[in-house]
Amino acid sequence: MNRRTLRGGRRPRGALAITLVMTALALIYLYPLILVVINSLKTFSEIMSNVVALPSRLNGENFSNAFTLMRYPNLFLNTLLVTCMGTAGVVLLASIAGFKLSRTRTRYSWLVFLVCVAPMMIPFHSFMISLVKIARNLHLTNSIWGLGVIYWGLGVPLSLFMYHGFVKTVPTDLDDCASIDGCSPLRAFFQVILPLLQPVTVSVIVINAMWMWNDFLLPLLVLSGAKKSMTLQLAAYNFFGQYKIEWQNAMAGVLLTITPAIIFYLVLQRHIIKGMVAGAVKG
């Protein structure tokens, strides 16, 4: 708290110049995406003749095309479901385990910790076929719910790593407090500890939700492209394949796919940095 007010104190010299230069840089940086926006409003022949020019008139036709062709509302819901279910599971499993492993200081718990975070080093492509095999045996394939469950296993390692680091900064006397009250350890965790972990929880949610929203290969393999249970990324990708020559519709499709994630980020932006301070850095 104190630190924040201190930081707000003094503007550096030339602050305005820095803002201007950085704004210019940011515009250049985002220019590829600005081009996507511009071209999503053009007709096909306009794109072919000049990519940089502004559209001669604004029309939303490309968007309504992409919207219906991608079956957007359906897929939006599917993707949201996977993301929510996957993220919720990861937060739950990782917070409990991260807390427990951080507090127990035995050789055994160190080993469990290593086993839990080792997957951060394992490239996905090296085990994806066997993973699909296992998922199939557990009846988790071809289902949005099943995909959500698989994400628990894939998402926990990094999240657990982040919780594990952060828990070290939470004073242990609160643990005792909770147990003296006589409630079950799990309840104590949810009532006392989990709220204290809120900053890192926000980062964990953001990192996992962004990844699950954007993931491609796992949904492709697990849902195997069935129309009913598709996610937005799969649809976008198929859309490029099917309408590869029609840049104008594809650009609109790109925007429809990335906008929800951008809004989600902007809403949570303030918390993300706080969470990073808490989570990653002290890890």
Binding site: I129, V132, L221, G225, K227, G241
Partner: peptide, 22 residues
């Protein structure tokens, strides 16, 4: 007819399907 259409990853996907019993 439930038709799934894919291109770039068709072979990968087909193999994963055949392999996993789906």
């Amino acid at each position: 007819l439930d038709i799934t259409v894919n291109q770039a990853d068709y072979v990968t996907l087909l193999r994963a399907k055949l392999n996993s019993g789906d």
